[in-house]
């Protein structure tokens, strides 16, 4: 342990950029990125379930507004959505005087709102596709056994749709991680924000950005393996046994 820490100190002593202080910036950037991505994914997921059910509804007045929402949020760049909410909040007359300002003053909250709305739109469509792909026979069996619509949704359609959605949702999680880099545009010190700060300070683009790229790469692989593990466990029922 002693040797390791000595080795580490020496390594840091050799360069001017990766000091304990800059590593601290990266560290807190990592925390911000993870918070932002994790929170928006969780809230987005909770929103997406009822939205996906509504999106699959036979009633047009339920289906159409949800479709418009997902169409607009999936069809426009996240950056625009971020700007819209960030500037929209800042330039909203009178908001500075209300209690909401305590929350909205930090760019974190507008960014969280934008990311959440964005991922909720994508996740809604992922779930809708999975709901639509429920085998007809399984729904028919549920009807034939006297299940009401609500019960069928809860017991048959959603549990099997969630499993089917898993691979696509894994991609969405990675997409959100990568998309979160634009939080730095509205002055949030996330991972990319930290890298930009360090670049500006030392004018060392390779050190600053390659390092952060490596961190993102590791995070991406961690998510990838997590989902592979989940798929293995939760999609086991679809694989025939080896004879």
């Amino acid at each position: 342990m002693q040797a390791l820490s000595e080795w580490f100190t020496e390594l840091l002593a050799d360069n001017t950029i990766f000091t304990a202080q800059t590593l601290g910036y990266y560290g807190s950037g990592l925390v911000t990125t993870v918070q932002l991505v994790f929170l928006s994914l969780i809230i987005g997921l909770v929103l997406a379930v009822p939205l996906a059910i509504g999106r699959s509804s036979q009633r047009r007045w339920i289906r159409t507004p949800i479709f418009l929402y997902t169409y607009v949020f999936r069809g426009t760049p996240l950056l625009i959505q971020l700007y819209l909410i960030y500037y929209g909040v800042v330039f909203f007359d009178g908001i500075q005087e209300t209690w909401l300002w305590v929350l909205l003053e930090e760019p974190f909250v507008p960014a969280l709102i934008a990311f959440t709305l964005n991922t909720a739109a994508y996740t809604t469509e992922i779930f809708r596709g999975a709901i639509k792909a429920t085998p007809r026979g399984e729904i028919e069996a549920a009807r034939a056994y006297g299940m009401s619509r609500r019960l069928m949704m809860r017991r048959i359609i959603l549990p099997s749709a969630f499993r089917r959605a898993l691979p696509a949702y894994g991609n969405e999680v990675i997409f959100m991680l990568h998309a979160s880099a634009i939080a730095s545009v509205v002055t949030i010190m996330d991972l990319t924000g930290a890298a930009r700060f360090i670049y500006a300070r030392y004018y060392a683009p390779f050190d600053a950005f390659l390092f952060v790229a490596a961190i993102y790469l590791c995070l991406t692989f961690a998510i990838l393996y997590l989902f592979r593990y989940l798929e293995k466990r939760l999609l086991a029922h679809l694989k025939p046994l080896e004879q």
Partner: peptide, 21 residues
């Protein structure tokens, strides 16, 4: 593999600021 593991923005910043160098 590598390209799909890195955010677009980070890659762009790297190429823009690092590319000239």
């Amino acid at each position: 593999t590598v390209i799909r593991g890195i955010p677009d923005l980070v890659l762009m910043l790297l190429l823009f600021f690092g590319g000239q160098m």
